[in-house]
Each structure stands twice: as structure tokens, then as C-alpha cells.
Amino acid sequence: MSTDTNNVDGYEHYYVPEQSAFPILASIGLFALIFGLATFFNELQAEATGAGRYIAIAGFAMLSATLFAWFRQTVVENMAGMNSVQLKRSYVWGMGWFIFSEVMFFAAFFGALYYVRNLAGPWLGGEGEKGQYMELAKMWVASGYEYAWPPMTTPDEAVNGAKALVQGAGEGNSMYPRDAHNGLALWLPMWNTILLLSSSVTVHIAHNGLKDGNRAKFQGWLFATVVLAIAFLYLQYMEYHEAYVDLGLTLESGIYGTTFFMLTGFHGFHVFLGMTMLLIMLLRSLKGHFSHDDCFGFEAASWYWHFVDVVWVCLFFFVYII
């Protein structure tokens, strides 16, 4: 295994790693995680208790530990100078395409939102050729169901009233600003937008600090970014609390609750992931990692962070405003 430095063109001595136990260990951990989760969900459904949750936790622990050791090894290899210019480019491509896959994951949910809002919803309300010919829509419309976005009542309620299995949250209980109970200044999504947009700026300033070789500036602004991320997550927690406790808006409140919580929830989960990445980068920096021209770990995390920010801007428009 060659560890000497690379040719200028970056083509010599591509580092093909030695055999590694990480992939098989990660596979076993991942398998235990999903098997445990599926078992746990089925147990919840059957109102039974069993081993599902413990298998899932064990799998998660194994997967996390393996990934931690795996990333650690790639960092060690890089710092030992084993990575050629070319291999570093492979990591850059890898991160870029991973973010593209994440974009497409969100596209599925935004697409679903578009479809129910602009096509299926109006048809359920009896609009257009499709609404006229749809037997169910006729039944619902005859029972007084009217479609409007956000749909705070469900077709089920129109027909079955209080006996309906799927109950909406009721008029005025959406997360739109016109329904915000505490006035616009206390409308949390607006503050979350400000927080997240600022955090994209702070992470960029941190990057500039690193490029200038100013480590204090890098760490300070990176720390600020992590703090903004935590503030965002806290506000989102408050928002969810308000929705569930004060407004009665839950995942089960028909299609509005479904789309609202799934879109913002997956985004919040990605904020958590991005924050974790940035926090790890901060800790790595405190250990003396990164130099002004070798900091892709941090750059990858910051790309991810900008991606999370862009998703939020889309969410803000399509879920909270329009």
C-alpha cells in the first residue's frame, strides 16, 4: 500500500483500501435496526409488547458505532496523506450526488402536496369533470363537504359527523399566519426562517475564516451556526407542541395534518442531521483537524446545511404561506 504523496496530476497511486470489516458490520446493524423497527411498529399496531424496540436500539447502536469508526478511519487516512487529489474528488462527487438523492426524497413529498392540493382535493370537492363523475365525491358533496385549502375538515366528517374515523383539526386551527393565534410577531415559522437563513450566512463566514487560516473565526461562527440550529429545533418543538396541544392538529387530522407534519417533520429531522454534522466538524476543528486547503469534511457538512436551508425556504412558501 503506497502512502507517498501524489503526482501533480493526481493519477498515480490511487488508494484502494485494505480489506475492511465496516461494510458487513454496518449491514448487520442496519438489518437489526429495520427488523427491530418493523417488529416494533407491528407490536404497536397489535398493542403488544415484545423485543422489537430492543432489537432496533441494538441495531441502531451497532450501525452508529460502525459508521463512527468508518468515518474516523477515513479521516485518519486523509490526515496520514494517503488520499490522492483524485480520491478527494471522489468524495466530493459522492457528497454532491448524495445531496441530489435527498432532493428527490423531498420532491416526492412536495409532489404529493401539489397533487392533493391542486388536483385530488378539488375533485373530492366535486369540481370539474372528475368530481362530477366520482360517486364518492357526489356523496360527500351531498353531505355538505366543501373543499378549500387548508382542508380543516375531512370528507369522512362530512358524511359521518362526530363518528368519523378521520377528524380534521377544525376551522382556524391550521399553521397559516391568518390562523396564528398569537399575532404575526409570535408566528414561529417566520422566526425559524430568519434563524435558518442566518445560519447559512454564519456557516459561510466560518468557511471564509477557515480559508483565511483564522481558526478562531472559523470555530466561533461554526459554533454560532450550531446554536442557531438548536434554536430552530427548539422553536419547531414549540410549534409542534402548540399544534398538538392548543390546536388539536395532529398527524391524524386528515390530509392537512399529514402533509404539514410529514414535510416539516422530515425537514426537522434533516436539520438535526445537519446540526450533528456541523457539531462533529466543530469538535474535529477543536482537535486541530482541517487546514485552509484540506477541509472537505466541513465543506460537505456545510453543503448539506445549505441544502436543508433551501428545503426550508420551499417549505415556508408552499406549506406556511401560499
Binding site: V116, L124, D156, A164, E252
Partner: peptide
């Protein structure tokens, strides 16, 4: 939809199986 009561594919909740 199966485990957590969402309505993506349930017309009763305002979703649509065609989705």
C-alpha cells in the same frame, strides 16, 4: 398511513389512493 394514522392514500381523510 398504516401505522401512524396519516391520510396520504385515504380519500376519507382528504387524500387519494391514486396519489
Amino acid at each position: 398511513d398504516i401505522h401512524f394514522g396519516t391520510s396520504f392514500f385515504s380519500a376519507a381523510g382528504g387524500g387519494d389512493p391514486v396519489l
